[in-house]
Simulated assay, not measured.
Amino acid sequence: MKHVGIIGMGRAGTVLAYMLAQHDYHVQIVLRRPQSTAVTIKDQEFAVKTLAQVVEEAEILMIATPDKVIGDIVQALSVMDLTRLRAVFHLSGAVSTDILDPLRTQKVAVGSLHPLQSMADLEQSLIHLPGSTLTYDGDPAMLAWIEDLTARLNCRLVVAPPEMNKALYHAGASMASNFLVTLAAMGSECLRQAGFSEEEARKALTALMRGTLGNLENLPPERALTGPIVRGDAETVRMHLDVLNTYIPNLLPAYGALGALTGAMARQTGSLPAPQHELLQGFFK
């Protein structure tokens, strides 16, 4: 099954279209507001077709639209003849596969295939997607095809258990990815007010964060944790709170909330003795 239709050309749709084409899949694109009969991604040209045309020609259909549009696409598909289609997947990490149930009446396999990767830029996404996790939640009948696709893209596959809480899964992914950027912005603001240029702050902090992520690749979070809180260094933590209160008070709530969670983790693992933990928790209230 090498004929794939992709509905939508957001970040995930664009990246997957290009990578699938690089692995000899025949990819056609459906756009809600097409302005031409073809789109070019890097050096690859893709035909732009209507939804009706793609349904007649593709074997696999991937819905790569914003979450709020998936239901509209399913409604449009439900009144079409889907005889040629083998499967319809959406790429959302938050939306249940139940939204695709109206298509089951035509014996089409359905599921979600979520790339667990940050896709802010095409070039960076093409670098980072290999090695990433694809989370599959859907009909077992398509698992062999999903496994083959995952291997071709050099990704890791996780098959979601039936009881998986998808909202909780997506919340965890969002915190680990989106809030990492927020933390970098917070740290950058501190360094810039301390005297670094914006470029110096960005380079310094991304190198620091790469080191931390490298630790997390090889160690559980509690062993990767470093810094004044896990050491029970109340004097340094107090200094942080005082200087933030003076210069960047809007960061105090985040520092306090994250500090309390960090202290609790350090206490649970025994790294932080109870007296120091109680003292630090008092700072964070």
Rank of each mutant, 00 (worst) to 15 (best):
M1G: 12
G5M: 06
G10L: 02
R11D: 02
R11S: 14
V15P: 01
Y18F: 12
M19A: 10
L20E: 04
H23E: 12
D24T: 11
Q28G: 10
R33G: 01
Q35C: 01
S36D: 15
D43N: 14
Q44E: 13
A47P: 08
K49A: 12
A52I: 01
A52C: 01
Q53N: 07
V54W: 01
V55S: 03
E59C: 00
L61S: 07
L61G: 02
P66S: 05
D72R: 14
D72K: 12
I73V: 15
V74W: 00
S78P: 08
S78H: 05
T83V: 03
R84Y: 09
L85F: 02
L85Y: 04
F89T: 07
H90A: 11
H90E: 14
G93I: 14
A94M: 03
T97M: 08
T97I: 13
T105S: 09
V108Q: 05
A109S: 12
V110D: 09
L113N: 02
P115S: 10
L116S: 12
S118N: 11
M119I: 12
A120N: 15
S125Y: 07
L126Q: 04
H128F: 13
P130A: 10
G131K: 08
L134W: 07
T135G: 10
D139K: 00
D139A: 11
D139F: 00
P140Q: 10
L143S: 05
A144Q: 10
W145Y: 07
L149C: 05
R152M: 10
A160C: 07
E163W: 02
L168Q: 15
M175H: 14
A176R: 00
A176W: 05
S177A: 15
N178P: 07
F179N: 06
L180T: 15
L180R: 04
L183P: 12
A185T: 07
A185V: 13
G187W: 05
C190A: 15
Q193S: 09
Q193V: 14
F196S: 11
E198C: 03
E199A: 10
K203T: 02
A204E: 06
L205M: 06
M209L: 13
L213G: 04
N215Q: 07
N215R: 13
E217Y: 05
L219S: 06
E222Y: 10
R223F: 12
A224I: 12
L225C: 07
L225R: 08
L225D: 03
L225S: 09
V230H: 08
R231W: 02
G232A: 07
G232V: 07
D233S: 09
D233P: 00
A234E: 08
M239D: 10
H240A: 02
L241P: 09
L241I: 15
L244D: 09
Y247F: 10
L251N: 06
Y255H: 06
L261M: 13
A264F: 01
A264T: 14
T269K: 08
Q276S: 13
L280C: 04
F284T: 13
